[in-house]
Amino acid sequence: MSSSAENPTLTAEITKPSTEIATETAQSAKKITLKTSDDQIFEVEESVAMEFATVKSFFEDAPSSTDTVPLPNVPAKPFSQVIEFCKEQIKFKANPDETEKKRSNSEFVKEKTNEDLVEMIPVANYLEIKDLLDVLNQAVADRIQNRSVEYVRSFFGIDNDFTSEEEALLREEHAWAFEDVDED
C-alpha cells in the first residue's frame, strides 16, 4: 500500500533528480524578490513577504508578477531585522501560543540597540506590519520611561532648539516630572 504510493516518486527522483529537487523547492518556498532603497536585493519566502501588507497588496493587484518589488522607503539594515521578526511571527500563525509569542517578541527587542528600534519603525509603518509596529512603539516607550530630558534628546537624535530662558521655564514647569529619573 505504502510502497505503491512511494514508488512513482522514487522513480521520478531517480530518472530526473535535478528537476524534482528544483520543483520541490519552488513549491515549498516560493521566493519573492525585493529591492531596498539602497539597492540591495532580498529574496524572501512568499509566506514571509505576505506579512508585509504593502507587498501583499502589490501581488493582489498583479498576482502573476515575477518582477522585483521595489521598496523605495526601506533601507537594507532595518529591513533584514524586520524579516527576522516576520519569520518568527509566521511560526505562531500555524501554532498560536500567546505566551511564547510575547516571550519571542520581547527577546527580539531586547537585543536591539536604540538605533535599530528607531530605524525599524518607519519600515514597519511603510510595510504596514501592525504587530511589529506595536512591539517597536512599546519598546521605544519603555526605553524613554523614567529618563532625563538629555537622554530622550539623545535617543531620538534631537537638537535642543529652546533658548536658555525657555528651557529654564520648562524645567520649572515640569519640575515634578524630573525627580525620580534614572541615571543616563
Partner: peptide, 8 residues
C-alpha cells in the same frame, strides 16, 4: 513631560 522639554 520630559519629551515635551526636549525640543519645540
Amino acid at each position: 513631560a520630559s519629551v515635551a522639554s526636549t525640543c519645540s
